[in-house]
């Protein structure tokens, strides 16, 4: 049995996995989802003080948030979703809608910031991986 199982790798590569491929498209789908989440993090972090959608879009643009640069409408989608989740609330003032974090939203922002401030030497780790590959 052991002898036969030595051929398993080749056997599965040529049969089971022959139509299976992790493509550039899959990679992009992941990157897109990640950059949307990143945009949400940045957006929430800005809403500790009330801001309008237009002001938010501008600031996110200036900060170089890729997902927003590619699709400005995303700001409103994210605002809407975050409002539904109870992370922020909107109110009207002088014909403009302002958004501001709720207590729940503030907790989310604080948690995210605490997570990201912990510094890990990624550069070293990347190098280490490059050597092993």
């Amino acid at each position: 049995m052991d002898e036969r199982l030595k051929g398993l790798k080749k056997a599965m590569q040529t049969t089971t996995f022959k139509d299976l491929s992790f493509t550039e498209q899959h990679k992009q789908a992941v990157q897109q989802q990640v950059s949307t989440e990143l945009a949400l993090t940045e957006l929430l972090a800005l809403l500790t003080t009330p801001k309008t959608g237009i002001a938010l879009t501008e600031t996110l643009h200036q900060k170089g948030v890729t997902a927003i640069q590619l699709n400005e409408g995303l700001v409103y989608t994210l605002l809407h979703e975050a409002e539904l989740k109870g992370y922020l609330e909107g109110y009207w003032s002088a014909c403009e809608k302002y958004y501001q974090l709720t207590k729940k939203g503030l907790k989310v922002v604080q948690k995210q910031q605490a997570k990201q401030v912990k510094r890990v030497p990624w550069a070293a780790r990347l190098q280490e991986m490059a050597i092993h590959e």
């Binding site: 491929s21 990679k27 992941v30 990157q31 990624w122």
Partner: peptide
Amino acid sequence: NTTNHEQLLDTLMHAYGQDIL
């Protein structure tokens, strides 16, 4: 830090995407 995480994710997908699939 987030830029580095994105870079690392790319490296991981490149190295292990097919294996994980």
